[in-house]
Design a protein around this nucleic acid. Sequence first.
DNA 1: TCGAGTGATGTCAGTTGCTGACATCACTCA
DNA 2: TGAGTGATGTCAGCAACTGACATCACTCGA
Lengths: 196, 196
Amino acid sequence: MSAAVIKYDHDMVRWQPDSRGRLEQAAMELFTERGFEQTTAAQIAERAGLTERTFFRHFADKREMLFDGSPRLQQLFVDAVAGAPADASPFEAVTAGLDAVSAFFVDLDHSRGRQAIIDSDASLQERELIKMSRLSSVIAGALRERGVTEPAASVLGQAAIGVFHVAFGQWVAPGNTRGYAELMHESLAELRAITA
Amino acid sequence: MSAAVIKYDHDMVRWQPDSRGRLEQAAMELFTERGFEQTTAAQIAERAGLTERTFFRHFADKREMLFDGSPRLQQLFVDAVAGAPADASPFEAVTAGLDAVSAFFVDLDHSRGRQAIIDSDASLQERELIKMSRLSSVIAGALRERGVTEPAASVLGQAAIGVFHVAFGQWVAPGNTRGYAELMHESLAELRAITA
DNA sequence: TCGAGTGATGTCAGTTGCTGACATCACTCA
DNA sequence: TGAGTGATGTCAGCAACTGACATCACTCGA
């Protein structure tokens, strides 16, 4: 609303920079202040000094804001799988992927805050799961590139994100002090032990 | 609309029976005729001779119509896990669950039709995934009841639905002639082999 | 230097999913 | 027979999106 009455002086730029970043920051603030469901797209846009319509030009939907890093995470994972030594087993290649993404999980407070928002809303959990599912698919694809056949590639991809999900959940759990890598290797060992 | 002008004769019942069933049938027809996204809740309700408001009294949302059988599937699975012999290993208990749900997958045409609808819409895939995730959670719970500790229970639960998902996908894939049980056991064997 | 794009934004109107509040009325049962 | 009860209808309204079109600082080639 306020944006509508701004008059541009000669030395003003037409638009403040980094609209997308401003929207993300405004959203995180509002989500933590009043909750995801209770925050409207219009409110986010207003706090960022933009319009609701512009909001939807930057993000396909309200949920998508929380998953901005997803493509990078995916890239990190598949690069590690693809880049594993040629003589590495499929299991070892996937382990390399699971290790590589640990670079992503450094700021525990940030991850906890984000996860608290996701855990508070079912539609966000759905979105999180489909991101995981896509990740599983591309992992399976990377494995196929390494010569792994179906259905082994898909099953291993699914198992990998299962391990990842469990370990990540433990990592952000309240009270946890252990690192992601340690927790992940523990879950991986459990998988290995229990399927043997 | 038309329901609004119906006058009830003495020998008419006030409401036609099985509203929920009529809604489900109308929905399946419309979804296959014109697609999920292109079908509105009002259209489904109208074909069932009901109101949009009544539609939402029977189903939490439009997506939920496709997942009516989910609770039964879940029950089938956990009962099999819980009912496995006391000396069965966790892996064997989960295998029993994966076998038990094969009773659910008999009508291949029906499953294919349903899956085609789900595959056509991202929000339906999200809903499907959260159902799988819930299933994974209750499996992990059933395993814990059997004395399996964390994170092994959760990891095995995740791996189980991974196997299930892959096998089910192969079963409904066009051209497939093999049975669910066979495909499932193959995937299970792959998981076992590849994590060893 | 000027005029034709270009692109990020704004404006507006509309559809759909979904919800709360309240009314209706055949049916049940004390 | 009269007081519920429960499945439904009616109505109003919000929030998530979407398409069509306008704006206008900025860029760049003639």
